[in-house]
Design a protein around this nucleic acid. Structure first.
Lengths: 149, 149
DNA sequence: TTAGATGCAAATGTTTTGCAGGGCT
DNA sequence: AGCCCTGCAAAACATTTGCATCTAA
């Protein structure tokens, strides 16, 4: 991951094993909590500590390399490596999986905000909740009969 | 607040002082944390406890009467009384105030999601971050010289 | 060499829960 | 009366921090 090394250097962050592991891991997965990252990359380096994950994710998010957000309603922060710029998600209420979406329905909405609300938009977040193909098939959609959790 | 009483009855929730105070309070304010609700309605009934606030907000959110979300990036859950159906916010990065917005830029986006991603949208959330009029005036916008926090 | 990174353990702050008593219907 | 609701205190959890030690540059 030379790309990652350059990214770190450009932000004056030292290239440490922890950072490379975190970025490489997030580069191949959906938004994850610190705990999830911890237990998943622990296999590759068992001596990493949870506080290192927290400190690094925080630092990387501050530098804009990762995006921190709380998508699900469990109140936990999740970190994500923004592969294609914009980050919008579709969150399945059946399985809690998080799907990236690349359409941005915003268009000229920033302009409306400025004109109507006198508000300067610097970023926005869109989250879409619903049911994915699999969960609809599994009968977890709203029109299906009520089921056990 | 007869409206509130009916709402509670329709959800099989007892009409308690705590619930009426919480709903009345949120009916007149922006999304609030449990702690904020606690200290604000404490004035009206000093014997209310924080856990009662948590339990009630949770119950009311489960019944769909309140909406729970984590808008700001401080990791704290906020509860909101959805006055006009849709809930979208403009969050000022200068003063952290939360402004409701009533335009919904989504239009036929749900249709796109269904066609392109095979995803059934049941709800969505839009959060807009930026700078409000006041904060721009106060020089807190991004183009202003760097300031102390 | 030296500022920055890390591990560990302890502290923090929010949210949850157990239990005994009190209030709504 | 009966069940839900509440207060209080303690527990559970995610996240942060202090400090001594290590490591990348």
């Amino acid at each position: 991951m030379e790309e990652i090394d350059e990214l770190l250097k450009s932000k004056n962050l030292k290239k440490t094993k922890a950072r490379r592991l975190i970025l490489d891991y997030l580069n191949h997965s959906a938004p994850r909590t610190a705990g999830e990252i911890f237990s998943d990359i622990r296999e590759k380096d068992p001596r990493l500590s949870l506080s290192t994950i927290y400190r690094n994710c925080e630092a990387l998010a501050e530098q804009g390399i990762l995006v921190k957000s709380s998508l699900l309603e469990d109140g936990m922060a999740r970190y994500e490596y923004p592969r294609n710029g914009h980050i919008h998600h579709a969150i399945c209420l059946g399985c809690n999986r998080i799907f990236p979406i690349d359409d941005c329905p915003f268009g000229q909405f920033d302009q409306i905000m400025s004109n109507k609300y006198d508000f300067d938009v610097t970023k926005h977040r869109i989250e879409i909740y619903g049911y994915c193909h699999d969960c609809r098939k599994a009968g977890k959609d709203p029109s299906a009969p009520i089921q056990e959790k």
